[in-house]
Design a protein around this nucleic acid. Structure first.
Lengths: 228, 228
DNA sequence: TAGCTAACTATACGGCGTACAGGCTACGGT
DNA sequence: ACCGTAGCCTGTACGCCGTATAGTTAGCTA
């Protein structure tokens, strides 16, 4: 009943779902989500594209598994000794950190479909923090949903969302953008021209994320049932 | 020099970029962004797919134009007589309204690329409101970026983002989701089970959007330089 | 030895974006 | 009356994509 190792094909260990997902993550991180194709994965793994269909029902299932694998990286430990705002904040920081590490996930999250186990785990912890803070189940649901959306939005947002771009490409982009700003009619876009520098630079991404999270948390706290 | 009407092909008026975009919007609204393909558009317009390449440099340019066309629908009028919070709020409501009308835009917004004219128009007005409220150019830039991301996130967020789904499909989804929730282990996911109803229903989308915007605005106001 | 099953391979289909080359129509100049 | 030219479109082909279907192989069990 137990299968032993089966290593007959010369240079290759047998395919596993985990190996496929691992290579897929590498591909997505390095070349973007568009590079993750069945055929490409097959080639990378030294296998016929159709071989992947033994391990996954189709590309959708593969992508779902990919999201789940990433979501599992979120640190769900909460310190019950600190105020709920801090508990929620560190939760959000962990989520944002995971999304920043793999920005392509945001595109996958907004495909419909039932939530995966990883999803549910994160959601459970968020709801728990909010419920203990005094929110009703309805309020907690709304806040958690909104917080998750905001996290995705932060990562998808402008500060050069362009991941995996080489520094030179990024500099080129920035240069072309600044060129565009410079030849804008000054009487129509005074505010944009005035803000040309902050608009076209994206230094201090950490500050950007900190600001976004602070703003979210400030909003949540302003609506909290009993602030403490 | 001036070309007059040229209607030689029997049943068809000559193609224009606007006509292509119009059909593309209809397609995206009715069947989702995936239905917008060069070949499909050509078929719909009674024309060879390659004909579209006369009017657009490629599919990317077509999609960019599509976004621009939609963004132009945003109502940029602001009432200078009301507090800046209200000015910004109605601006955001207009933006969210546009995104809700064409949810597929959110997917297009997060593709990199230089901002279009429509983009700049919206950004200019947002920055203006924020600057007059006392934010520095840097702050205003950050807030505007974040607000735009949040608007996109709201629309992309959970409440059944599944657009264009028939009511029956939507009910099926909801039913399967509730089934999943019911057979969850109660000891591992108490908070989720407790919130099963608000999680699986998506009535009152207006309330969802109002909440999201209120939360954003509360956060912004909490960080405003001189609160009023 | 025969048969079963897990894990692949081979082939093929239809759809996608688009490069490239060719053609047709209406107009302006001569 | 002719023709060049510009604008608009067609035809064909290439190389990707996901995947349905069917065939092959290795190792285990009986």
């Amino acid at each position: 009943m137990a299968r032993t190792i089966q290593q007959e094909v010369p240079g290759r260990s047998p395919l596993t779902a985990a190996a496929v997902l691992g290579r897929a993550v590498e591909l997505a991180d390095a070349e973007g989500l568009d590079a993750v194709t069945i055929r490409r994965l097959g080639k990378e793994l030294g296998v016929t594209p159709m071989a992947l269909y033994w391990h996954f029902r189709g590309k959708d299932a593969l992508l779902d598994a990919l999201v789940d694998r990433a979501v599992a990286d979120v640190d769900l430990a909460v310190d019950l000794a600190v105020p709920w705002q801090q508990q929620f904040g560190s939760l959000m920081r962990s989520i944002v950190g995971m999304l920043r590490a793999h920005p392509w996930i945001t595109a996958l999250l907004s495909r419909g479909g039932l939530p995966s186990e990883g999803h549910l785990g994160v959601l459970e912890v968020m709801l728990d923090v909010l419920r203990r803070a005094g929110f009703t189940p309805e309020q907690a649901t709304t806040v958690a949903r909104h917080a998750l959306s905001t996290a995705a939005a932060l990562v998808g947002g402008e500060p050069g969302y362009a991941p995996r771009l080489s520094p030179e490409e990024l500099a080129d982009r920035q240069h072309r953008f600044r060129g565009l700003l410079e030849k804008l009619p000054g009487d129509r876009y005074p505010r944009i021209i005035e803000a040309a520098v902050p608009l076209s630079t994206c230094d201090d991404p950490d500050g950007y994320y900190a600001f976004g999270l602070d703003l979210l948390l400030a909003g949540i706290e302003a609506m909290a049932p009993r602030a403490r």
